[in-house]
Design a protein around this nucleic acid. Structure first.
Length: 787
DNA sequence: ACTAGCCACTTTTTT
DNA sequence: AGTGGCTAGT
């Protein structure tokens, strides 16, 4: 039906109004916000304001529905309506009579599904939506893949033969199960190491390959063993009513695939779907997204192929590279303007990443000024590295950058030790994100295990963990017998314990088992009749756990404190979640990561792995361990695909920095209990020389701040060790520099060269100046003369 | 059944 | 280097 002239002008003005509503965005961002219908691929460079786009896109949907791309009108329009809208464009004020005309399509907050990478990101997204559109925003379904899947499975897991109150196994649990399987099947875990087998199984799940399929196709002996392990592993998890992390995705996909009514339920509900960090999705996850997407295909994925860093856990970069092929008529939008970093930092990032081949290719640009150049610092040991980084941090603190805006990033968690040690001694407040999580501590896992068996009585694994903790005279022999009987009958171990009297072989342990069952029943009672907090307190006391810890002395004392902390966690959980129950709490515990609880308001230096830093930004970023064998890691050095992944990780690291970036390497480092000397990371060579700092520092004593303590002032750059190193001649500008040469520096005067280090196209010289101490300079940039 | 002491392994990165 | 698992001895 043709539109009248009045209608046409109204629709045209409506578009203008909506555009104006988002005039705070740049034109590219705005086009991404307004394109609400059909498949959309947003290639969002680091710091390009992609979260802002996602938030605004959701706002747009909630405020205007699909009005921007639609000809629909809620009622016939008159010339008066057109006039009022024209006024509204001037004043920004909509009259109540035309307001209903501004929105088309029925879009409620719960029709929008937004998948993020971490729980923290989901929370932030919700907060920002709430801030923009009010409490309606809270009903937008924003969560991670894993949390979303748990929600779906909670309502329909029975269709797959799992209980609704299923348990979620973490990596640790998986290992335990696998170890047991290997023992039962007499498979040598030297020949078939645990981790590779488990990750193989994980990759099978990522590619939606069932145990049956693997068994059918496995020809070689090793593959047949893996197939056997996989089948057995799944069998046991099912018996225990448990999913591991990969299962959550795998079984949700199966649920949606095999049950049309469930699939349609969600397709009807989620009219608009958005997926963030799409470059880090697995094949199974991309399938999941496809299954949730209805025939309208209102799917928007956001990602940056250069920031794909989770290949090791099944992410495939092909998802984002091939999105346009999977979804025909995809509109692709590139956000390339960076609002975060200075151009020296950005150019460095560009220069590093351009060495990768498999990428869509894009170049970030910024209007921010050049800013400071990239600092490179070099040390002899990892202790000294920590010291030098600390020095930079306090320098920057003195120039007004708060500690919370400074972050130390590294490749592996193990690197944090040396840095932590120094910071602790120097009195620099710091926080470490990641590493061992609170919920990974043994005593906390014990508490959780008690909670789990009440929630899911079939959870034999958790049961075994705590059945004799504290000691109840139930030993390995008894547990073995229990497990045998339970297996034979196909019932949970807990049932066998209940009926212990019926089994001859358990007669000796009968009393101990009855005693345990009484405790179990008491816990069930407490949960039934009280709050979660009562329940946890009861676990600590009734099980004798407190008594056990108290008896242990001061070791136990700290562990008791951790347990007490769990109580306050539970308490807080109950306060924040009205409808929270035990299952919900346990699932949260299973799915939170350390980064989720990272609070940016505490004023302390942040330390974390480069992986954890994804999505964050800091004024100052220090990346430690820029060495071959560390970063890129030893295993990645000779595999091109792996090296490219490391390079992307480096790109992620560099682009976290807003103002200052410091890269650090150490000439020697203690790792795996051995001291190793590593070459400088190739990534340093890939930096553009013009962005790297000429280390001509203004001559000033490092002011001691309150944070620095005694004894850390004597910073010795360049020890004898460095002068022993093989002299490499630096040829540039007709000058050849060798270790031991005497040189003159226009600012620092005369000195002796301590070391020559090849760096990019230049040479890094370490010079011991007669009057000014040891400094580092670039051969090409420094005002140097050979004497 | 429990404990102490020894050995081996870890190391990528995480939901 | 540190931790956790295993063995052997009580």
């Amino acid at each position: 039906m043709a539109l009248t002239r009045t209608e046409n002008s109204f629709i045209e003005l409506r578009k203008q109004y909506i555009e104006k509503r988002f005039s705070n965005l740049n034109p590219v961002q705005r086009s991404a916000v307004l394109k609400t219908e059909g498949p959309l691929l947003i290639l969002a460079g680091a710091g390009s304001g992609k979260t802002t786009v996602v938030v605004n896109r959701i706002c747009c949907l909630l405020e205007f529905g699909n009005a921007y791309e639609s000809d629909e009108l809620a009622r016939p329009v008159t010339d008066k309506d057109v006039e009022e809208l024209r006024n509204a464009l001037e004043t920004g004020e909509l009259t109540s009579s035309i307001r209903p005309l501004m929105k088309t399509g029925v879009i409620k907050p719960w029709n929008i599904l937004a998948i993020t990478f971490t729980n923290k990101a989901a929370g932030e997204l919700k907060n920002r939506i709430e801030a923009a559109v009010g409490s309606d925003g809270l009903d937008v379904f924003a969560s991670t893949f894993h949390s979303a899947c748990v929600r779906f499975l909670r309502s329909d897991a029975e269709l797959l033969g799992f209980p609704r109150s299923f348990t979620i196994y973490d990596t640790d649990d998986s290992k335990r199960v696998m170890k047991e399987i290997m023992k039962d099947l007499s498979i040598d875990d030297k020949l078939f190491p645990l981790n590779p087998q488990l990750s193989k199984i994980g990759r099978y799940k990522d590619s939606m390959t069932s145990p049956e399929e693997v068994t059918a196709t496995a020809k070689e002996y090793r593959d047949r063993v893996t197939a056997k392990l996989y089948s057995e592993y799944q069998k046991r998890l099912k018996q225990a009513g448990a999913f591991d992390f990969d299962d959550l995705i795998y079984f949700t996909v199966r649920l949606l695939r095999e049950h049309e009514e469930v699939r349609e339920k969600y397709q009807r509900r989620f009219k608009y779907i958005m997926v963030d960090e799409y470059q880090d999705t697995s094949y199974a996850q991309s399938l999941l997204v496809r299954l949730l997407t209805g025939s309208e295909r209102n799917l928007c994925v956001v990602g940056d192929d250069d920031q794909s860093i989770y290949r090791f856990r099944g992410a495939t970069i092909e998802n984002i590279l091939g999105f346009e092929n999977t979804f025909s008529n995809t509109k692709t939008i590139r956000l390339e303007q960076n609002y975060r970093s200075t151009s020296h930092i950005l150019n460095s990032a560009n220069s590093v990443i351009k060495n990768n081949k498999g990428r869509k290719g894009k170049t970030l640009w910024t209007n921010n000024g050049d800013g400071d150049k990239i600092k490179i610092i070099c040390s002899d040991t990892e202790q000294e590295e920590a010291e030098l980084i600390a020095k930079q941090i306090t320098d920057n603190l003195n120039s007004g950058i708060r500690l919370k805006n400074q972050a130390v990033l590294y490749r592996m968690n193990a690197q944090s030790n040396a840095i932590e040690n120094y910071f602790a001694r120097a009195g620099i407040p710091y926080r470490v994100i990641g590493g061992q999580r609170f919920f990974d501590r043994a005593e906390i896992k014990d508490m959780i295990a008690y909670m789990c068996i009440v929630s899911n009585p079939a959870d034999d694994l958790r049961l075994q963990r705590i059945i004799n903790k504290p000691s109840r005279k139930i030993g390995a022999a008894t547990i073995g017998e229990l497990s045998r009987i339970a297996d034979g009958l196909g019932v949970p171990m807990l049932e066998v314990i209940r009926d212990a009297d019926d089994f001859e072989t358990l007669s000796k342990a009968s009393n101990a088992l009855k005693n345990f069952y009484r405790i179990y029943q008491k816990l069930c009672d407490t949960l039934e009749n009280g709050t979660l907090e009562d329940f946890v307190r009861d676990i600590i006391d009734s099980t004798g756990y407190r008594a056990m810890l108290t008896a242990e002395g001061d070791e136990g004392e700290t562990r008791l404190q951790n347990v007490e902390e769990l109580i306050s966690t539970v308490k807080q959980y109950e306060q924040e979640n009205e409808d929270g129950d035990l299952d919900r709490f346990l699932e949260q515990v299973a799915l939170v990561s350390d980064i989720d609880s990272y609070d940016e308001n505490t004023d302390a230096v942040v330390m974390m792995t480069l992986h954890s830093a994804k999505g964050l930004e800091f004024d100052c970023v220090y990346i430690a361990g820029m060495e071959e064998g560390i970063f890129p890691g030893e295993l990645s050095r000779f595999d091109e695909r792996e090296t490219e992944e490391e390079r992307r990780l480096c790109y992620v690291g560099i682009t976290r920095a807003k103002k200052k970036l410091t890269l650090s390497y150490s000439k020697s480092r203690m790792l795996f209990g051995q001291t190793r000397r590593n070459r400088i990371s190739r990534f340093l060579d890939e930096l553009p020389p013009e962005c790297v700092e000429l280390p001509v520092e203004p001559e000033r004593k490092i002011e001691r701040t309150d944070y620095r303590s005694r004894n850390s002032g004597s910073v010795t750059l360049g020890s004898q060790a460095s002068s022993i190193r093989q002299p490499k001649p630096a040829v540039k500008n007709n000058a050849v520099y060798m270790v031991g040469d005497r040189v003159n520096h226009r600012v620092f005067g005369d000195g002796t060269i301590l070391s020559v280090t090849e760096l990019s196209s230049d040479m890094l010289l370490e010079i011991d100046f007669d009057t000014r101490g040891v400094k580092k300079t670039m051969a090409n940039y420094a005002p140097l003369k050979k004497l």
